[in-house]
Design a protein around this nucleic acid. Structure first.
Lengths: 121, 121
DNA sequence: TTCCTAATCAACCGATTAGTTGAGTAGGTG
DNA sequence: CACCTACTCAACTAATCGGTTGATTAGGAA
């Protein structure tokens, strides 16, 4: 099923084993067996995880005799970061703007207490 | 099943409809019906999406008569950003380090062509 | 050639997911 | 009160997911 890359990337990283694989590949390239070694699941299961990560564009595999070393592709992370930062910042700004508005209202109220008494609450 | 928050957050954002809901909530709070309005899916389906986002800690709901306005919680985004940045930076640095090493090797080669001094640091 | 290693493919299984419809609940309004 | 609105809950379904085992492919070594 053709899915947009952002969905694929998020889905790929929703699995702790796959995040773990990414963490290991951040240190350096590794073969499928090397990546599978720490887990008690089958090599085929790890191979599937690698396929998911590859299809999401998070890693690539080259050929080295029978081995297929995996390499982390850092660029895709930017796609996520961009999406996240966009909405985080927007929400944050809105929150700060609300804060400012509330502060202004407070100032206005304080003002009316000094000049005019009988402000509504 | 109890799942770690990072997995829940990534899984929640792996769905385009849910990312869309987050995008809308970044602009301002909205009720369930307001959020459901643009989609052709049922209100119940949207309600479920909201539950997923809520359980991931991405949003909260308050009560306002019969309405349950949703509010985006920006803090959770930091959890993701931290994770992403950690490994992105690590991979990037490794890449740049490799670049530097290759450049050094190139320099050393050029150097040895002219004189005969090593350039390792 | 035969054998070993590294990895993928194929088929299956149980659990989860995204959707559905129908019923129930909480809180106004006539 | 009855009735409407705004949801959530419950049960079901089809599709996907993470895992399994067994067979197969690709390449190197004896």
């Amino acid at each position: 099923m053709e899915q947009d890359q952002l969905s694929q990337v998020f889905a790929a990283l929703a699995d702790p084993t796959r995040r773990d694989i990414v963490a290991r590949l951040a240190v350096g390239d590794a073969t499928v067996s090397e990546l599978a070694e720490p887990y008690e699941v089958s090599l085929q299961a790890v191979s599937k995880h690698i396929r998911v990560l590859t299809e999401a564009g998070l890693l690539t595999q080259r050929r080295e005799a029978q081995r297929r070393p995996c390499h982390l592709e850092a660029e895709v992370f930017d796609l996520m970061t961009k999406w996240i930062e966009r909405y985080r910042r927007q929400a944050q700004e809105r929150y700060e703007r609300l804060d400012a508005v509330l502060a202004e209202l407070q100032d206005a109220e304080n003002e009316s207490h000094r000049t005019n008494q009988g402000a509504a609450s």
